[in-house]
């Protein structure tokens, strides 16, 4: 579905991603693990085109998308659930959902909206409220719903559990699983190794702008030194 081939991304003068190679297969959850400031968000932003890489190639469904403007990349079927949710504050919940809507299989905006409301019923209750008056968990559901409204094939989720209460984490956890089973591909950025272990099919571990380890969950569990690298 998505391939990153030796990408190098700079933020101003600092060389953040130093040759990142990774892959997100279809209908799977791939997790990118790493501590703060290791380049995880930069990787996400490189993929969606907000900070285009200077070197290397990014392919989505076999098409080279490196250097395309972000809106074109998004239109090809990649959606972003950003760090900190970034809900549009002056929009209502419903407006947040419909603003980026793109026609999918269902074809109609109302159908897609109903689908999101089925997934997160609380959003229906809050549909006329302003996005800024939601709780953290509700905002996260809205951010995921907003991304789904673009009918994407790949969702990039940047620390979706950050700062949430355990019960809500569980709930969102389940929803992400459902999304994967419905055929969606997910790239999940996480700091928390336990969270990653519960969700992921395949894990990449990032340190200082490089991938230092990759493997399946079972392989990862056997590697003791990983736990040192990721002590929190």
């Amino acid at each position: 579905m998505l391939q990153l081939d030796e990408i190098h991304t700079y933020y101003g003068d600092s060389h953040i991603l130093q040759g990142v190679t990774m892959e997100v297969p279809q209908s799977s959850i791939t997790t990118l693990l790493g501590r703060n400031g290791m380049g995880k968000t930069t990787t996400i932003h490189s993929i969606i085109g907000l900070i285009p890489p200077k070197k290397g190639k990014i392919k989505f469904k076999g098409v080279d998308i490196t250097g395309l403007p972000a809106y074109q990349i998004a239109q090809m079927g990649i959606a972003l659930v950003p760090q900190g949710r970034r809900i549009f504050r002056s929009l209502t919940v419903k407006e947040n959902l419909i603003m980026g809507w793109r026609r999918g299989k269902e074809g109609k905006l109302e159908n897609d909206l109903e689908r999101i409301y089925d997934l997160f019923p609380i959003l229906k209750e809050r549909s006329q409220q302003s996005g800024q008056h939601l709780s953290g968990g509700e905002q996260q559901m809205l951010a995921i719903g907003r991304a789904l409204m673009t009918n994407p094939e790949l969702i990039l989720m940047d620390e979706p559990f950050e700062g949430l209460a355990p019960t809500i984490i569980k709930d969102i956890h389940r929803k992400i699983f459902e999304l994967k089973n419905s055929g969606l591909s997910i790239l999940l950025v996480e700091q928390n190794i336990h969270m990653a272990l519960k969700l992921a099919d395949y894990v990449y571990i990032m340190n200082k702008g490089r991938i230092i380890y990759e493997g399946t969950i079972n392989q990862l569990k056997g590697v003791e030194e990983i736990k040192y690298l990721l002590t929190f």
Binding site: I48, L50, P69, A70, Y71, A74, Q75, A79, L80, P82, R86, F88, R89, S90, L91, E95, N96, I98, M99, G100, R102, R146, T150
Partner: peptide
């Protein structure tokens, strides 16, 4: 209107509007 919603969203967060697939 949807145009208006997008404009108001752009006032909040332009980068996020582009990431939603909209040519701001």
């Amino acid at each position: 209107t949807r145009t208006g919603i997008i404009i108001r969203a752009g006032v909040n967060d332009k980068e996020m509007v582009t990431a939603m697939g909209i040519n701001i």
